[in-house]
Design a protein around this nucleic acid. Structure first.
Lengths: 187, 187, 187, 187
DNA sequence: AATGAATGAGAGTTCATTCAT
DNA sequence: CATGAATGAACTCTCATTCAT
């Protein structure tokens, strides 16, 4: 796998794409992204084969970062506390990184993101899935398909984040409400 | 008397847009939509001022149809039964109209849809909001902001629909699971 | 020559075209002209075969009106006084009808105006030509080609008008200066 | 090092625009100009931001060239001889470059040309204005506004050129007539 | 005759991608 | 490998003209 030399440049493009897409949407020109990254438009294509490729890698990166943020510093305690910890960090990451969150939301629904990218993004979420599994092990959804539980929980999290972004002053309160709703659902 | 402006033609364009956007995304060319509608590309612009206008009207139409579908034939009974009825019809509409649902999902996150369009779309959802209010009146979220409850419930519904579309054979089962999750959350 | 019935409507279109072209230039849409005339866009084409036809007829009309204005009330006196009279009325018409003058100026240089239209417009200017001929009969340009004298005189008049429009407060003064320049040239 | 932006290509586009506009008017398609220049239609826009930009730059170029032609090789002699020299070179340039002259005439009256472009074009004409000032210093228009004198003289020149183009066989004769008319007016 | 909806050929401009330097 | 000029297909929207009513 011959990779181009500078990881810095790759990272700069990824970061620039995050910013530009947050501002302009997925229709943003690759030239605009390259410029924001301080790189020539031609160079962008030595790091990413196509625009779609860039988008897919960006998605992986952002989703991975979000997952890692959620799982960081996980205490070895009971499921509910772990879940709350994760939930809390997830919301915190989203409010602290509104641009990343915004871009990620756009990518999530784009049809430029391939099935295989979605799949491998989900694979990085395994840790989250495991906590979810432990959380619902004795709850009312214990017999539902794991993927359904995951989908519903994720939807709740995203909706809570959206709501918090619209009313950031009461973030903690909404974060708590959302978590309790989740726990009622699965716990 | 000139040829009168034809409601059929307007409807044909709306329908064509639904199909084409479901297949190609919001980037679909107006010419492709016009062709699918059996209309010249110029004609599209006598029915809709701009592409954005078409998108906004399409959004209103689809969202309105979805809301009407959800609320149709509502029995005058207790909140839970009403909610279940609505939930069920909502899922049914979505599974019966996958293209409309797909296009609606794209429009929902597009930034071509203006704030005022979103607002007036939401106004058509008032009926749904009322049922939700009755449903949570005595439940654990009775003190949460109405908008948060609405957001979370909506997210659950959308997620359930997505899941059902991915595994349509067990639609009824998932529909039921989703509803119970919702009810635990708010009921 | 089957002419459509309403002369009023024809006149309304001509008048509307004058206004719209003065404001928007020759690229103005026929639909805009029709609307300004209070007529349907289709109707415009029963009075004028094509846009070019409208433009040509408009040119003839405006040029004719301008010529008539210049020649009106011509006193039967010596050449210089006649010339001054004409010059004065010409300038007056132009300052009193800035829209017509503006549109006429645009048409004059348009390549939509055919050679034959130019020719017949010039034919309506015969009266002016005659005064010019008498004016230069004993002057320094007595042996120059009539058409050259005409062209130069016309250019002087147009330039004087342009200048007056740019500084209308001293119109009379500039009108006088221009005339004297003309007379020195040919008289 | 990328392919440097080529002055040749810019010049080719300017030259092509001159030819195409002379033939087809200002409505000529940018694609036609690009093709005539042997360049892709996209490339035109790397040299000129918009069609209007191209037109403005073309105007500046042509007017500048015309002014330079008129002022070239100016002898240090009396005003009349200088004026005649300039007049003669001006006419010669116009007859030798009918396409440029034709295109310039169109641009002169176009409303795509901005006020600021007109202004800076006029600034390149300062040399001509100075000769004009010297020429009229003791003549009958010595007290008229400089701008009026300039306007009238220019109109005479343009009209003479037009006339010459229509009867090129007797160019020298007409050139002379025009000059004498001018000199009577201001000298 | 009048209306205005219908048509479809362009128009200017953008942009992902390629490639000469 | 980096650069940015070059490419040309594609896009939305306009408009003179036609034609069903």
């Amino acid at each position: 796998m011959p990779r181009p030399r500078s990881d810095d440049k790759r990272a700069a493009i990824i970061a620039a794409a995050t910013r530009i897409i947050a501002a302009q949407g997925l229709g943003a020109a690759t030239a605009a992204i390259a410029k924001e990254a301080g790189v020539s438009n031609g160079s962008l294509f030595t790091y990413f084969d196509t625009k779609a490729d860039l988008l897919n890698q960006l998605y992986l990166e952002l989703k991975g970062e979000m997952g890692a943020a959620a799982l960081g510093g996980l205490p070895a305690v009971d499921a509910r506390t772990q879940m709350l910890h994760m939930w809390s960090r997830w919301m915190d990451w989203a409010t602290a990184n509104p641009l990343k969150r915004r871009t990620l939301a756009q990518l999530q629904v784009s049809d430029e993101i391939t099935a295989s990218t979605h799949e491998s993004a989900n694979r990085t979420m395994t840790g989250i899935g495991e906590i979810l599994e432990r959380s619902r092990a004795n709850g009312p959804m214990r017999d539902a398909p794991a993927a359904l539980v995951f989908t519903l929980s994720n939807a709740l999290a995203e909706a809570t984040i959206d709501y918090i972004i619209g009313d950031p002053d009461r973030a903690d309160e909404h974060k708590q409400s959302g978590f309790e709703a989740l726990w009622r659902m699965i716990g």
